[in-house]
Amino acid sequence: MDESRLPVPLARVALRVIPESVLNRLTYLLIRRMQKIHPGLFQNLARLDAATVCIEPSDLPYRFVLKFGQGPTSLRTAPRAGYSCDAAVKGKLESLLNLLEGRIDSDMMFFSREIIITGDTAVVVALRNTLDREEIRLLDDISAMCGPVSNPARKVIVRVNKFMDHIKTSMKNAHERRYSRDADETAAKLECARLQEEIKALKFRLAKFEVRGKRMDASAL
């Protein structure tokens, strides 16, 4: 398993308990740190048209506003109501983080509706493409921000990750054991495919009759 990944459950818990003012201070520091590590990314962001994007993790009490283009980039929490952005990206925190780090293809999440985009699609596309030009490892950036305690913190995080992965795998295995009906499923799938073929053939024949009927109507006129 990938050890340099930010443990999402931990992040989720942390983000839920950290007061908003502290959170804003942290995001400010994070952006500043990232500017040092990824100068190219911020140059590219500055090349874009000015825009604000609301990032809405569906499993968090906060929304974030990312401002970029034609000036400095900023990230802060959004006021609860009455704030309008050019576009919004909604999804689980994990999906959004995977997206940021380029682990997962955003079009795929879009096809499967894991993330939902509203507002000015062009803004989101520009942001996505610009982020994807850069290798971002959020965990590295965050631990770099922690200074001297970064190494011990990293070790804890890696251990948490391993633990979470272990739990996930055993739950998955248990689930599969409990519901292993592979044999039945194959038979059912085959039956389904056969029926679909049959329906298709019937529809096809019906269509031919319909056309014949239409033609007779037309010539009767």
Binding site: F204, L206, A207, V211, R212, A218
Partner: peptide, 15 residues
């Protein structure tokens, strides 16, 4: 549009 395909089109375009 008539749930047919090109090879068996029945010349529905004539409709």
């Amino acid at each position: 549009a008539h749930e047919l395909n090109k090879d068996s089109c029945q010349f529905v375009c004539g409709l």
